[in-house]
């Protein structure tokens, strides 16, 4: 039995320490905003934030979490609320709101990881250039974040809009 922090909550976990976070989140904790894509750290569908850093849940055993909190797309509204010092997570995270405003997804399966990566970027770099966004989603992690549907143009627009919403400190 170990304890991990997921989306602001302490969760007890039975899985063996070598189990990748992906399976623990989905099957044991019912946190579904993280998707299986390759299991090989090649695509980014399974990205979560570990502390402030994007990692691939498919290759991160729970023993490697070192007590750092995990945030998935499901926990983004709450992350935003706590960053803004608000009590409740009443609004969406600006990245989620921007993804709706810009109608970013095609099928949407890659967007969980895309939104996590863009959140990581904007928390560190609130006014990114096109180049910053491209690099974040291509070269900054263990692999590029892949989108089969070709939604990259929409993602670029979504990321810029999210940056604006974040600056305004509001999302809905």
């Amino acid at each position: 039995m170990s304890t991990i922090v997921v989306n602001g909550q302490q969760r007890k976990v039975k899985a063996s320490p070598d189990t990748p976070l992906l399976y623990v989140l989905r099957n044991e904790l019912g946190v579904m905003g993280v998707k299986f894509g390759c299991g090989l750290a090649q695509c980014g569908a399974c990205s979560v934030l570990l502390g402030d850093e994007e990692v691939r849940a498919c290759v991160t055993p729970i023993s490697a979490l070192e007590g750092k909190p995990v945030t998935t797309v499901d926990g983004l509204p709450q992350r935003w609320a706590s960053q803004k010092g608000k009590m409740s997570a009443g609004t969406l995270h600006p990245v989620q709101q921007a993804w709706i405003d810009e109608q970013v997804p095609q099928c949407g399966i890659c967007q969980f990881g895309m939104m996590i990566k863009v959140t990581e970027l904007l928390e560190a770099n609130p006014k990114p250039t096109d180049q910053d966004i491209r690099e974040a989603l291509t070269t900054s992690g263990p692999s590029p974040h892949l989108c089969r549907c070709g939604s990259y143009a929409a993602i670029l627009e979504g990321a810029h809009r999210a940056a604006k919403l974040m600056m305004q400190g509001e999302s809905a």
């Binding site: 998935t72 970013v104 939104m115």
Partner: peptide, 12 residues
């Protein structure tokens, strides 16, 4: 169908 997808509500 986009809002439920990006907020994690869709059952895939």
């Amino acid at each position: 169908s986009i809002a439920p997808k990006v907020t994690g509500k869709t059952v895939w």
